[in-house]
Amino acid sequence: MTSLSIRGLVFGVSTLTCLAAMPGIATEPENEKSINDLEFLIGEWEGQSTFLYPRDEDRSPAHETVQVSCAYVLKDSYIQCDTAWTNADDRTRTFRLHFNHNQLDEAYQVLFIYDNWPRHVSYLLNYDESKNAYIGFSEFEDAEGGTGEERVEWRLSDDQRELHSAEFNHLETDPDGFWANSFEFVWRKVD
């Protein structure tokens, strides 16, 4: 084990205390938006994903099949989705998504934790009426310390039974305005 020199390692978010001094005895949202707006997520989904390799023309897209199960947790204040993504070699990765309505930022928020990757990903999602999509942005760093941005779009069909997501990234070294489509998936509701 390493020593206690850990303060510099804080990489995440922290604004209130832990199990302790939470003002968090449940209070209902007073603004119009709430996690209930995302209730369409609740249920079972199946679908496919595609990894695109926009910076490697020689590489073919990789596909996965996806199974998803979403339910309310934390007394209906979050929606939790457990997902399993299986590739053509029958290898599976699983990760969990937590959606909530972040009252501080007045936006929806999604948090990912993975079985195959030690980092958490979290970003805000805002509904863009002009695109009829929920849009989110996150940042990442590459192996050389360069930075990149990722834009995520979640789009729901009119009957709310098909959800399409697309991810685009822009590396620091990319030309301005170049956002490469790197990943997309579609989930379809299972009756």
Partner: peptide, 30 residues
């Protein structure tokens, strides 16, 4: 969880009634 890349444990907390989340590293004090 144990973050093998950072060689430390990590603690993540979410809860009803507050929109944020808490994430911080944990170390073992032997």
């Amino acid at each position: 969880n144990y973050n093998a890349a950072n060689e430390n444990f990590e603690f993540l907390l979410i809860f009803r009634g507050w929109s944020g989340k808490i994430i911080y590293p944990l170390e073992w004090d032997d």
